[in-house]
Computed example of a mutant assay.
Amino acid sequence: MEIPVDLLNGIEEESNKIPINKLISLVSDISNRYRNTDDKHISSYEEAIAYISYRMPATFAVIYAVLKDIKDICSNINPKSILDVGAGPGTAMWAATSIWNDIEQITLLEKNKNMIKIGKNLSANSNNSSIKNSIWLEADLENLSELPKHDIVIASYSIGELNEDVQSKIIKKLWESAANDILIIIEPGTKIGFSIIKRARETLISLGAHVIAPCPHANECPINDNDWCHFSSRVQRTSIHRKVKNGQLPYEDEKFSYICVSKKHCNMIKSRIIRHPQIRKGHIILDLCTKDGIKKVTVKKSDGDIYKKSRNSKWGSVFE
């Protein structure tokens, strides 16, 4: 996974508008606020620049990983239109066009004027005509009246910002009124983030949705209340990101939870690896989510091709 060069150039161009010491201070303030309070509001254009400098690459990596997984499972999916709700600076748009290069229509709903402004500035740097011609609408998810229909609807890191009592209502509206085919919901890979995804999954299945990923079934989720299902995506840190976060490692791992459903049947996977594979001498231990629940499977060297496949697998991989 590589972040598009025109997006990286756009982030750097915006970040250079603020002295580095001030940018570091803004990033620290936003990070502390996100971590310690319920305040997720970006109140100025400078804060929007700080946000994209340290968060956009990681969220791009997550959304890209989710969309790539969906494409691998259902190779016949070829969306012509994307709706991003709670779009922020338009991260999902950039990830989607990196997966499908013939998307014709992109609509982004965002309530924060500063995010819309920076999203448009980043779009202007793109070599992709769909991104350049994307439609930005100022809209609050809690007060949506009419929604345009699109092949894929993406709600990344936005449902969790709503009050719990309205989350199911919004999800139902996105599913019934906006999605021609697919709805994708992504949240942080935390216990709280997964609880949002788990409730969304239950709501969507009750509405007749077909589960595509990450689950290999549409049965009741086997993850108990003391645990949570999540995955991780690695992204190379940009030079500006290393500066503003004082990062020592050249990469960052972003944990996430998600659910993807469709209005059409898709061949379901047999199982998914939900923990890091434990590689031992002569065997590998895998924790799998299957249609029959959570299973711990030992694959021995004598198992031949299955063993070779297991050695190349990772946390989050589909396992057939």
Rank of each mutant, 00 (worst) to 15 (best):
V5A: 08
H217K: 15
D151R: 09
Q278L: 11
A61G: 11
K120C: 03
N224C: 13
D287A: 00
I70A: 07
L67G: 06
N180E: 15
S239A: 09
A178N: 06
D38A: 09
V166I: 08
L108V: 09
Q167V: 02
D140C: 10
N127M: 14
L162N: 00
V235H: 11
R237K: 13
S44A: 08
P79V: 01
A96E: 06
I116W: 01
S317P: 14
S233P: 07
I171A: 02
V297G: 02
K173H: 04
E138F: 10
S129A: 12
E110V: 02
P148I: 10
I259F: 05
N224A: 04
D292Q: 13
V66E: 02
A61M: 10
D39Y: 10
G86I: 07
I274N: 00
N312S: 11
Q236D: 13
C221Q: 02
S257F: 14
C74D: 12
K296F: 02
D303M: 15
L144K: 03
K198M: 06
L174F: 03
Y45E: 08
I159G: 06
P4D: 06
I49G: 00
N219L: 05
L108F: 08
P19D: 13
G304C: 12
I306A: 03
L286I: 05
G189N: 09
L122V: 08
I184P: 00
S239L: 15
S233V: 11
A139Q: 15
R55K: 03
S15Q: 04
I306L: 12
S25Y: 09
V153K: 02
I77D: 06
L67V: 14
N163V: 01
S75D: 08
N267Y: 13
K291Y: 06
N267K: 11
H41M: 01
S177N: 12
I103G: 12
Y34I: 03
G193Y: 01
